[in-house]
Nucleic acid binder design. Structure first.
Lengths: 199, 199
DNA sequence: GTCTATAAAAAGATAGAC
DNA sequence: GTCTATCTTTTTATAGAC
């Protein structure tokens, strides 16, 4: 099945790749045009400016990923079930797009990132947090600090992708080996979560 | 005590601040010159090029931080003691320079980052890993995956700093409050480590 | 809508006077 | 060593023909 892309779609696809890999500052409009097989003038015709094109990409990527992770989570009862699903979904999804964590970190840590930060959906974090509070209340899990635990959970899932270039270099992993390692990591993290949370 | 800085020192101090905050691509030689209260020509007189100046800053920062964390760790016997010390040292140190994790992540994830990755000292990671293997062997700690655990340990310490803009925004923390939260995190992480590792 | 050509501005780097 | 002025290149953005 060959999909025929119109110019706008070609630009968006090319811009995504360039921006996600290089960040806003490191990306060149010329590079996007080359990858899309069109000329620079088209970029401005469709999106006016580099800034506007970037904003469009950021929104699309973010709004694409977060809901996918959250999907169906509301139907689960315990925090442990939700945490399990989060780990599975997150790692499987990011394994397909391993540059996303860096893209987000890169974007929100720049000066004047306020606008981008406000676009990030917070429902996932809030619902995990609420569920964690509730289960502590019920005595289902140990009396740990909910906010600190959520930061740990996110960090254990996302941090390896941010450090991937180091890990790959120092342990001689190629992309596939690193990806496999992250899949194995799912089961390991589920164990850690239980060790920490279960009374 | 007022320290009088010569031109080279003024440049290095200014370059550090600009590069650490904005990354290589986001930094401007003019901005460094302005902050150092000199003109652009001086930058090239002392360091030839932007690239060379950046390399100098990266090396200095990295070689400054890693050894500080590792100091005295070799004298500790068990992995648990080393992990405790790591968490304490890392969070206290990064609390003083909270932009360092982003600076490193930003630098190693760019295309052509190979040169910078090779400059990173690996002794810390290797010695933690070796110690972890040894203590599992001795039955002092559970049979977990050493590499996966080390990634988790690093992630639990460093990730919050990378996500700080989001956390600050969504929970209305100011810098001081976030810093305090990280100090409290030390004790919490030590608990998690024990839950995971101790039989 | 798409292209070529070009403007306009920014940014890294250097020449040369002092 | 330090400065001003300038060069060169890069990069974003636009004008105008088709």
């Amino acid at each position: 099945m060959t999909v025929v892309l119109n110019t706008e779609e070609k630009i968006l696809l090319a811009a995504e790749e360039i921006f996600v890999l290089n960040g806003y500052d490191g990306s060149r409009m010329q590079a996007i045009a080359d990858k899309a097989n069109i000329n620079k003038a088209m970029l401005h015709y469709y999106f006016r400016s580099k800034e506007k094109l970037f904003e469009r990409i950021f929104e699309e990527k973010v709004l694409h990923f977060f809901p996918k992770i959250e999907e169906d989570m509301v139907h689960l009862n315990t925090f442990l079930e939700k945490a399990d699903l989060f780990v599975e979904r997150y790692i499987h999804l990011i394994n397909q797009y391993p540059y996303i964590p860096f893209f987000v970190v890169n974007t929100i840590n720049k000066p004047n990132s306020q606008g981008f930060i406000e676009k990030l959906p917070l429902s996932l974090k809030r619902s995990l947090l609420a569920s964690l509070y509730a289960d502590i209340e019920k005595g289902l899990i140990k009396d740990i600090q909910p906010f600190q635990f959520i930061m740990s959970l996110l960090g254990m899932c996302a941090f390896p992708y941010l450090m991937a270039p180091i890990f790959k270099h120092s342990f001689r992993f190629n992309d596939a080996e690193f990806s496999d390692l992250m899949i194995l990591r799912i089961a390991e993290l589920k164990r850690y979560i239980r060790f920490i949370l279960l009374p």
